[in-house]
Each structure stands twice: as structure tokens, then as C-alpha cells.
Amino acid sequence: MSSIPKNKEELENAIKTAAEKLFADYRTIPHECSRVPGVEGNVKGTEISVCDTVAYLLGWGILVIKWHTLKSRGEKIDFPESGYNWNQLGDLATNFHEQYKDWTYEKLLDEYETTLKKILTIISRTSNKDLYEKTWYKKYTFGRMIQFNTSSPMKNIRTKIRRFKRAKSL
């Protein structure tokens, strides 16, 4: 399988595989280390906590669900999110961190797992044609937009988490 899913089955597998690997790493991080800065941030030169990485993924997952819901109703979608432009993704990431700053590590992981299940349900209920054979946003298909905001950042964050674990001898 290529790194970029080209159909519904590959997308489902990419998300499940990335999630399985990432959650395996997350589960080895003790709760007391989950809020310690030391993970390379989304904004150049910043460090964030493990919890912030989950908040980031959760934030994007929730946006994918929101986009699908709005599009299904024929409503306008304010990409990437209301109040943010594509050139403000660092600010959006910081907003996700702030939004979930009081959540426990366990609650974040549980909520992200639930969000991924919802996304996989959306994929399972969407035809391959609707996922990959028509443009959904600008030049991108819905499947590609899902991948951009699920399996792709999960792989990226897993690399950062593994670096953090090595640095902290976890």
C-alpha cells in the first residue's frame, strides 16, 4: 500500500494502522509525563506536551466530522475553521491545546479514540465514489481531506512522540 490512500479500503487501513501504532506509544507514557513540554510543536521552535499532541489530533478529527456534517446538510463550510485561514494553522493548533488544557490524558485519549471511530463510521457509510472520485474541497477529494487530518498527522506525531520517549528514557 502506498503512503497516500487511493480508495476507501486503503483510507480505513491507513487510519486504523496509524492509530494502532500511535496509541501503543501513547499508552507507554506515564500520566505524570503527559503534560511535560518536550515534544516538537506545530509552530516552529516550540515545544508542547504529549497531551497537546492528542488535543491537536482531536481538534482536527472533530473538524473533519464538522465538515462532513455541514456538507451533508448543504451548509457552507468555513475552512479550515471559523475564524482561521489556512495560513493560521499554528494559531489553530494553539487553540486546540488551549481548548483541552484541563482535560486529563486519559480523557483526551478516550475522546480521540471515540472521534476516530466516528470518522471510520463516516468512511464506512460513504461510497468510494464520494470519497475518491469527485472533488470535495478545491482540488481535493473527501478521502484526501480525511487523510490530511487523520492518518497523516498521526504518523507525524508518532515520530515526535517516539523522539520524546527516547529523550525522557520512557
Rank of each mutant, 00 (worst) to 15 (best):
M1P: 07
S2V: 11
S2A: 13
S3F: 09
S3Q: 14
I4G: 01
P5Y: 02
N7A: 06
K8P: 05
E10Q: 15
N13G: 10
N13L: 15
A14H: 11
K16M: 12
T17C: 05
E20S: 15
F23E: 09
D25N: 11
T28D: 05
I29D: 01
P30H: 07
E32W: 04
S34T: 06
S34A: 13
S34E: 04
S34L: 07
R35S: 09
V39M: 09
V39E: 02
E40A: 10
E40S: 11
G41Y: 08
G41M: 12
K44P: 03
K44H: 09
G45R: 13
D52R: 08
T53P: 00
V54P: 00
V54G: 01
A55Y: 01
L57F: 10
L58P: 01
W60M: 14
G61W: 04
L63R: 15
V64F: 00
I65E: 09
W67G: 05
H68S: 06
T69D: 03
K71N: 07
G74M: 06
G74V: 06
S82E: 14
N85A: 14
N85P: 00
W86K: 15
L89N: 01
G90P: 06
L92S: 04
A93S: 15
F96T: 07
K101P: 03
W103Q: 12
K107T: 10
D110L: 14
E111T: 15
T114R: 14
T115K: 09
L116M: 08
L116F: 06
K118W: 01
L120F: 00
T121E: 10
R125Q: 13
K129Q: 12
L131S: 03
Y137A: 13
Y137C: 11
K138T: 10
Y140E: 11
F142V: 00
G143S: 06
G143P: 02
G143Q: 01
M145C: 06
M145I: 07
M145L: 02
T150N: 08
P153F: 03
M154G: 04
M154W: 06
T159E: 15
I161G: 01
I161W: 00
R162I: 09
R163Y: 11
F164P: 00
F164H: 05
K165R: 15
L170V: 05
